[in-house]
Design a protein around this nucleic acid. Structure first.
Lengths: 165, 165
DNA sequence: CAGCTTAAGTCAGTCTTGTTGACTTTCCAA
DNA sequence: TTGGAAAGTCAACAAGACTGACTTAAGCTG
């Protein structure tokens, strides 16, 4: 590791530095969600639908219970979103084979099409930011984000990464 | 700058890497807002109140118009939040001297007290994450976040930094 | 196998936070 | 001086979260 991180050079931990980080996080998150939000504004969907679609695409066959933990919402809240997506033919819900209480979720072709449109837009911004900042900055970005997560979410984040790598 | 960023070592721009960044952003933002949310859950306030308090503290005397651009909401939306904060004696609204249409916003002592409680919690998480990741990672983190902002917001972010540095 | 637990879904009601539309007051410039 | 623009306020509505109570179906266990 670098030698800057050791010793007493802790100016990066001043309250002013932390405040700037907080504000950067706030403004960046706005940019982060702006493009998909714009796409969805026309349709009858919102950010909640986007998130559901993202994670169903990412972990096909996930159960409702697993999904609502990933999203951090109640089942009632997720159910409203999921119902419209299923009715509109973007998501398919299959009864589990091993455990018939479970429903496994998959994107239909139409669902995948919307997923692409949304994630293309979001990745484009991400790609531009990554390219502008460079690989070392990106590594640091990822490190700090990980350290900010609640431990349980960090665990689930890693599980997701491994399945998709 | 590093030489890794030049040439054709562009593996950090693969779709899989970008997806992981997107998910990291999502999970980290949840952690980022969790502590203030918990504090506010008891009181009659929410995240919107926190944001207003944060930026009034950061830019005392700001006008309503300036604040709503920073927050990215409509003036009607901000007004509801502001009204309760003023009624409850956390924020003071002074009619402008030069332009009497404007209202300049300040935290009262009670407002500053709540601001401290909220920002202490948020900074504690931020500090732990910064410390765990180290100064180089933090620099990268800030670079990528900046690159993700919309240009107009980046401009306002810098203006804020300079006033508070 | 009877009874508890778990997964999913539903219905009803509430809260926060965003929206649009209509309005007043104030300022400034043609 | 008047007419438009800007700042702020009030009212009504929508999205998306929440809690609480309940049902159905399936699995597990003493």
């Amino acid at each position: 590791m670098g030698d800057v991180s050791t010793g007493e050079n802790l100016l990066f931990l001043t309250d002013e530095q932390l405040r700037q980080g907080i504000e950067a996080m706030f403004f960046a998150y706005r940019g982060f969600t702006a493009d998909p939000d714009r796409i969805l504004a026309g349709m009858a969907y919102g950010r909640a639908h986007h998130r559901a679609i993202h994670f169903i695409n990412r972990a096909p066959g996930t159960t409702v219970n697993n999904l609502l933990i990933l999203l951090g919402v109640t089942k009632q809240s997720l159910n409203r979103v999921l119902r419209t997506l299923i009715e509109d033919g973007l998501v398919e819900s299959r009864v589990g084979t091993a455990d018939k209480r479970e429903r496994h979720l998959y994107l239909t072709e139409a669902g995948e099409e919307l997923e692409h449109k949304l994630s293309d837009a979001q990745r484009a911004r991400m790609r531009a930011a990554y390219r502008a900042a460079g690989p070392q900055a990106v590594a640091g970005f990822r490190q700090v984000l990980e350290a900010m997560m609640d431990p349980e979410m960090r665990r689930r984040y890693h599980a997701l990464k491994e399945s998709g790598a």
